[in-house]
Simulated scan of single mutants.
Amino acid sequence: MTDMPIETDVAIIGAGPAGLFAAFQCAMLRLRCLLIDVLPEVGGQCVALYPEKPIYDIPACPAVEGAQLIANLEKQIEPFAIPRLLKHRIESLTGHRGAFTLGTDKGAQVNSKAVIIAAGAGAFGPNRPPLDGLDAFEGTGAVQYYVRRKADFEGRRIVIAGGGDSALDWALALKDKAEKLYLVHRRDRFRGAPESLRLLDEAVAAGQIEKVVPYQLHALRGQNGVLEAVEVADLDGATRALEADTLLPFFGLATDLGPIARWGVDTVRSTIPVVPSSCETNMPGVFAIGDVATYPGKLKLILQGFSEGAMAAHAIYPIVNPDQALHFEYSTSKGVPAA
């Protein structure tokens, strides 16, 4: 890292799947770009939270694990040698359309003509269940909020708590590895894709998963951070002890946009409203894509983030090249430009 400012056409804040594909789209238009992320590696939540979790709604990929998706995106941008600024958090954004200055927490300065915010959910952390003595079990790994290696759960007695996609997906992914797997939810109705619900019913019928409904977490039993049982309670207060050595609570993430909320960009409940056709925010020259962007009809799907990255790149082209008309060409016709 030098003391000289980094000069680029497009500063992309966030190197998750949406940010990586936006970099590809910018490079295809011969726009210089820089990927910036607070994490030590690219990939965002796909790598940090669920590298081995299968993703089923990426076009042309019947199933792809999070880490593999990122590896594929990395291979796609490899010909362009796109620079990265990792382990840096953008603290400040000043300037105007065509001439922005970004400052990081490490003292680096980036000068760019446009900005793409692809920050996902922003800074994230798990919503922790309000259980006495939770810290001791977190410290030993008996309570975990993310699954990074499925092999770590081989032969374990697992309680998964939650009623959304994460709870369902991990219950289905770990059912063949666990000695016993309980799925706890406060009601016998889960929020998930129809196919996931169908697979859950099949796994329950086959005895691979035991649904514990309507119950919610009540207490943890064990000593010195070693979990022996998870106590659950029904709506009337009656309790039941589930013998287990691992608890995986999936109650969503607490998110925080951090410094982004102070830049003058409009925000609504940790998201950034954008113009649907270009993904431009209320600040001319600043765009938002992926989970952090919102507009009527928005779907929080990785594939929609890919589309938004393409729209933002094309909207940025005239900012960087005001005197040049962009003639749209398909990649099948023009191929990949030389770096």
Rank of each mutant, 00 (worst) to 15 (best):
D323A: 12
P259W: 03
I260Y: 00
A313C: 13
L301E: 02
P318C: 12
D234E: 10
A244D: 04
H314W: 05
K300T: 08
T267I: 15
D266H: 14
E280P: 01
T255D: 00
L253K: 09
I319T: 06
F287I: 02
L235K: 10
H327G: 06
S270T: 13
P273L: 11
G305K: 11
V320R: 04
P249M: 00
T246R: 11
G309A: 09
V286A: 03
A238C: 04
A261R: 13
I272N: 11
P322C: 03
G258T: 04
A244W: 06
V320G: 03
A238W: 02
G285E: 03
T239W: 11
V274E: 12
I260G: 05
E308H: 12
L303S: 15
W263G: 01
P276Y: 08
R240D: 05
H327P: 02
P276K: 14
A288R: 12
A315E: 02
N282H: 04
V274P: 13
F250W: 04
A313G: 10
L235F: 06
G285M: 02
G297V: 09
D236M: 08
A288P: 12
Q304L: 13
S307G: 12
A261W: 00
A244R: 08
F287K: 01
G285I: 03
S307E: 14
A244G: 04
C279P: 05
H327A: 13
I272P: 14
A229P: 07
P259C: 02
G264M: 01
D245F: 10
D234T: 05
Y295C: 10
A241K: 06
D236Q: 13
F306E: 02
M283R: 12
A312Q: 07
D266K: 15
V232S: 06
I272S: 10
Y317W: 10
V286P: 01
H327S: 12
A233L: 01
D291R: 04
G252M: 04
I289L: 08
R262I: 00
T246A: 08
M283L: 15
P249W: 06
M283G: 00
A310I: 09
